[in-house]
């Protein structure tokens, strides 16, 4: 689900942006499901694999666990925020180009 140099896949993009405020695993699944209107439903195996890899890449970090709590919370790091910024500007540019192309198509001369 997470590759180093590729553009982020849609599920990992949503996982990353949902960690803008600290959340634990199940919270991430719920939030991603809410944000995407139930379109993206992460399985626990997939999510845990993605979290482990993102921690390894330094995009997110696990927060210290309080006593008696089994759920570990994760938060976005500066590197993760930078990556998210890069992705957002990439997508914004795509939207800009796409909209411009569509507008040109709408205003085409009738042939």
């Amino acid at each position: 689900m997470v590759m180093k140099n590729d553009p982020l896949s849609e599920p990992s993009f949503y996982v990353l942006l949902s960690l803008a405020e600290p959340l634990h695993g199940y919270g991430i699944i719920k939030k991603v499901e809410d944000l995407s209107d139930g379109r993206i439903r992460l399985g626990p195996g997939t999510l845990y694999g993605a979290l482990t890899k993102m921690v390894k890449m330094g995009w997110i970090k696990p927060l210290p666990v309080e006593n008696g709590e089994r759920r570990k919370a994760y938060a976005l790091t500066i590197e993760g925020a930078a990556l998210l910024q890069k992705e957002v500007s990439r997508i914004t540019e795509q939207i800009k180009h796409g909209t411009a192309a569509l507008r040109a198509w709408e205003n085409r001369k009738p042939s």
Partner: peptide, 8 residues
């Protein structure tokens, strides 16, 4: 499902 995509 437990794994929601093929990559995992």
């Amino acid at each position: 499902d437990f794994f929601s995509d093929d990559e995992s």
